[in-house]
Structure formats: structure tokens, C-alpha cells
Design a protein around this nucleic acid. Structure first.
Length: 278
DNA sequence: CCTGAAACCTGTCTGC
DNA sequence: TGCAGACAGGTTTCAG
């Protein structure tokens, strides 16, 4: 499910609250239950409750596709992978079929709420650690961080001699893009996913960075993309240029969108707007 | 260093 | 209705 805009949307809703649910800031963790052992990357399952029970949630944020829930000296880091979701249930309910971890929280008003990690495919992972930087150490820069200048971006593209799409999906190169947003970005930038990263000219690299920021910003503004049964709330899926639109007309030129496979991932491209030359 | 294949998992959809 | 196969928003590991 989640790429940077979906994770950012979840982080904001937990931090700031929504019409349906309050913020989880300052809530205290009262009870912890893990339903699928492998969901917990760290620490050992028997040590989780002792590590986090009684702690208060001091902040909620995002780095790349990681949700960061600060509990003072300890941080919960959650990666949703393909099908994970993090949601609030007001009150005390029996677990759903795909719930993998539940934290029972109590807020300042004394209400009980559940912070639920639900993940049908069980690929998601949760870390509870006093050294969150270690888990994030391999991540590349944040795409929306102004410290990433067009010049730095261009030079890093040239340095890594790789196909454009797999490189953009590589979280050590840039943190946050996934399969949907990468296809959208490459179409907006008019670049073919099979272009070699070291073949880009400076103006193409600048165009690519601008497209990355434009697509991610729009995705966040639309609260992410809701597809299938997993993510709820976003509406960016109604504005896709190419993703999932094979056979339908390109929004720029009307040419039917093609579906190819690049690095084992379904890839959507307008062969006219995104011409391929070696 | 790069690429592709396989593994980790469950659910949905399509076609016969 | 049943069943096989393809496919799904991600990452890691291994072979070449």
C-alpha cells in the first residue's frame, strides 16, 4: 500500500487527529498484544511489553516510508511494506483477522483507544528501539528536503549507473518513492523508466527532481492514494496519469498507455511522451 | 557495482 | 462452482 504520501497522511492523522479520531499525542500505552511474531523485528517478542508499556506518545513523524512514534527514550518504527495499515479504533474491540499488533492507549480524558497494526500479507515490520537512527541508517535523502539540490541530485544520478526506475525505487538512493509514484513521476518528467541514470543531462535531472516533488506534494495534498481494500481516505487514485491505466489514453497525447515489466515491477509508460533511446 | 530471480505472505480477479 | 495462474503499493538475499 504505502508510499511516502500515504505514510505522511497516516502520520499526520495520528499526530493531529481527524474528524473521526483524536490525536494520539500524550496517550499512555496500557497494554500490548502481538499476534504474529515475525511482525516484530526488534526487540525479542517477550521483551516488547516491558520496553514500551507505561510510556507516553511524545511525537509522531515519518522518515522515508517509516512511521516514527516517539515514546520518550524509545521509538516505535513501523514499516507498512505492501499491505500494512496503522489505524485507530475507539474503544475496546476484539481483534480483526489481520491485526498483527495492538497497543491499548489511554488519553488524558481517560478514554481507551486501540492503535492497530493491520497487515494481511504479513510483510510489515515494527521496531521498538532506543537507537532509531540505526534502523534508518541506509536511507537516502528525503525528496522534499530543500537540502537535496538539483546539482546534488544530478551528480548522484550520474554516479549510480542504473536503470532509472529501479534506481528511483531504491530507498538508499532516495527515501519514499514506490511503484505508483515512480511511474507517475517518470511520466510527468517525460523520461523513460529504462533510461540509464548516467545518460541524463542536467536539465533532465532537474526536470526529474521537480516532477518527484510535484507528484509527492499532490499525493500528500490528496491524502494519498486508496487502492483495493487496504488504504482509506485518500483520493489521489482518481488522478493517476499512467499507473493502472494500460490501454487507456495518455492524458498528454492520447496514445494508449503501455504496461511493461521493469525490475520485476509492473510499469506504466506512454511510449510517445517518454521516448526511449538507449 | 549491476541485474534478475526468489523468498516472505494473503487476497482478489480472470479465464477455462 | 471450482481451480489454476497472474497480479498486488516492498524489501532482502543470493546467484551470475
Amino acid at each position: 500500500m504505502p508510499e511516502l504520501p500515504e505514510v505522511e497522511t497516516i502520520a499526520r492523522s495520528l499526530r493531529e487527529g481527524t474528524a473521526e479520531q483524536p490525536s494520539i499525542l500524550n496517550c499512555q500505552i496500557e497494554r500490548v498484544k502481538l499476534f504474529w511474531q515475525r511482525t516484530l523485528a526488534e526487540p525479542a517478542p517477550t521483551k516488547l511489553s516491558h520496553l514500551i508499556k507505561g510510556r507516553k506518545i511524545t511525537d509522531v513523524g515519518r522518515r522515508g516510508k517509516f512511521l516514527m512514534i516517539c515514546l520518550g527514550e524509545v521509538t516505535l518504527q513501523i514499516h507498512l511494506r505492501m499491505s500494512g495499515d496503522l489505524l485507530i479504533r475507539m474503544g475496546d474491540f476484539p481483534p480483526d483477522k489481520h491485526d498483527r499488533l495492538i497497543l491499548w492507549l489511554r488519553n488524558a480524558s481517560g478514554e481507551t483507544l486501540q492503535l492497530v497494526f493491520n497487515d494481511p500479507r504479513k510483510f510489515g515490520r515494527v521496531w521498538a528501539t532506543s537507537d532509531p537512527q540505526r534502523v534508518l541508517s541506509a536511507l537516502g535523502p528525503e525528496p522534499l528536503d530543500a537540502a537535496l539540490t538539483p546539482t546534488i541530485f544530478y551528480e548522484s544520478l550520474i554516479r549510480r549507473k542504473r536503470l532509472l526506475k529501479p534506481l528511483l525505487l531504491d530507498q538508499t538512493f532516495l527515501a519514499g518513492l514506490g511503484n505508483i509514484y515512480t511511474d507517475e513521476v517518470l511520466h510527468l518528467a517525460k523520461l523513460h523508466p529504462l533510461r540509464r541514470s548516467d545518460s541524463l543531462k542536467e536539465d533532465e535531472a532537474e526536470r526529474l527532481l521537480a516532477a518527484i516533488r510535484s507528484v509527492l506534494t499532490e499525493g500528500i495534498a490528496r491524502n494519498g492514494a486508496s487502492i483495493d481494500w487496504v488504504y482509506r481516505g485518500g483520493e489521489f487514485q482518481n488522478h493517476f496519469r499512467v499507473y493502472g491505466r494500460a490501454g487507456q489514453p495518455c492524458p498528454e497525447c492520447g496514445t494508449p498507455i503501455t504496461r511493461i515489466v521493469v525490475g520485476q515491477r509492473g510499469t506504466h509508460v506512454c511510449e510517445r511522451c517518454q521516448p526511449y533511446f538507449g
